[in-house]
Design a protein around this nucleic acid. Structure first.
Lengths: 234, 234
DNA sequence: CGTTTTATCTAACACTGTTAAAATTACGCG
DNA sequence: CGCGTAATTTTAACAGTGTTAGATAAAACG
């Protein structure tokens, strides 16, 4: 017997299903995603897919995990491209890459950070590690910037609330979280600011008042850089 | 004939349908919402609902509009309760009321700012005015604070990007937008920051790293107050 | 070749939104 | 009161959905 060959065939089939789902998702949005549609496009029938995914929820979860790593890779690449520069520039690059990926993959992004499928319930324990990968890029930048003295922490971020400091202390050193508390905190609030802009933009809620959302985002990223304490001259 | 009586009956039926939908939504989430479920609970059949709503999309849109005004009223009330105080305190009150409403009505909030129903497409031109009402509360606070000299604009917000300034200038004076450009801009970025925190919190994405999200939000609101230039002493 | 495992299909169930047509109810007026 | 009209509501049906059970085809192994 050749389990490799069979397993490979099985994995290929899983990939083909996911690719078809992604294509359907891109063409017709979340409403166009259905097992029967996927199966028809692949030349088979819906129940056949159950040999590769236990349910449509499992399939969606797989798509979400893939999308998270795709986002993380885009963000990591953007960071790597300017790795030689200072933390401020790296953070700017990461922020713009993050937004760009969201705008280029709106359905995937809503799959990650919205809940476009009513029947679908996100298995938080599974998806969070995938979500964390992008976050850690930001956290690492802050960690290094703090260590290198690129950041002069403003008063409001110098002393963290004790409850939060406790959580962050407990986290530091744990599984991949080798960043100091301040880096994690700054990364978290940066993530939230970034995320808010992107989501409002994706839903076209901020365009009517601001108009040029590109300029808004660029300006706000610059403001963020200053407000977290990056020294302007550097 | 008494059109008033019939119209009133019709409006009451519409309200009953929406209330039933809200109850179903609260009990079973977005997945539990269906015309047949609503009809069954009301003691009628699904096609009967079509005399009150053209489609389930129309019904959802109505729910969204109601939720937007409910959010706006909560925010306006929070502002009114501290109307005598300074802009900083008003903004803090509004921010917390906003978050509180979101946490107390997670499904409604996702209905507003997510797209929980795949087949549903938001009629932006209809929902945006409703969304704007909450936004205008924040904008008004900023407008008054700027006028009263409560705000000493930091460098990064003193000069706005020309593309944005142009949009904001065009908006000022138009339909209810009597706020100066800087007030609108500060309100927009505050909204985005607020929104990002709330969304990440609703999806339980920020708890694993921060822990005490109440403390995080309170701290970030305080940071926002300072960063937009509210004088600390006031 | 036969056997056994793997993969896929057909049929069915309980749902979904929606439409057409029929049936029922309520109302105003002579 | 009773008739006629208009407003409601129901039944039946269509085309979808995810999912399961059981039969069937295909491939792999001895």
């Amino acid at each position: 017997m050749q389990p490799d060959r069979r397993d490979r065939r099985r994995l290929e089939a899983r990939e083909e299903i996911k690719d078809t789902a992604r294509a359907l998702l891109a063409e017709q949005g979340a409403a166009g995603l259905s097992l029967r549609a996927i199966a028809k496009r692949m030349g088979m029938t819906a129940p056949g897919l159950y040999h590769y995914f236990g349910s449509i929820n499992d399939l969606i979860t797989a798509l979400i995990l893939d999308a998270f790593t795709q986002l993380a890779e885009a963000v990591e690449k953007a960071d790597a491209d300017v790795a030689s520069r200072g933390g401020a520039e790296r953070l700017v690059a990461v922020a713009h890459a993050w937004r760009r990926w969201a705008l280029d993959h709106p359905i995937d992004f809503q799959l990650l950070y919205g809940s476009p499928i009513p029947t679908y319930e996100q298995p938080t324990d599974t998806t969070y590690p995938a979500a964390r990968r992008s976050f850690l890029v930001t956290a690492s930048i802050f960690a290094q910037a703090i260590e290198c003295g690129e950041i002069d922490l403003p008063e409001e971020y110098r002393r963290l609330p004790p409850e939060i400091a406790r959580s962050l202390d407990a986290l530091t050193g744990l599984e991949g979280h080798d960043q100091p508390p301040h880096a994690l905190y700054l990364a978290a609030i940066s993530w939230a600011r970034l995320h808010g802009h992107i989501m409002l933009e994706l839903f076209h809620l901020i365009q009517p008042v601001i108009g040029d959302v590109d300029a808004l985002f660029a300006h706000e990223v610059n403001a963020l850089i200053r407000q977290v304490g990056f020294t302007p001259s550097q």
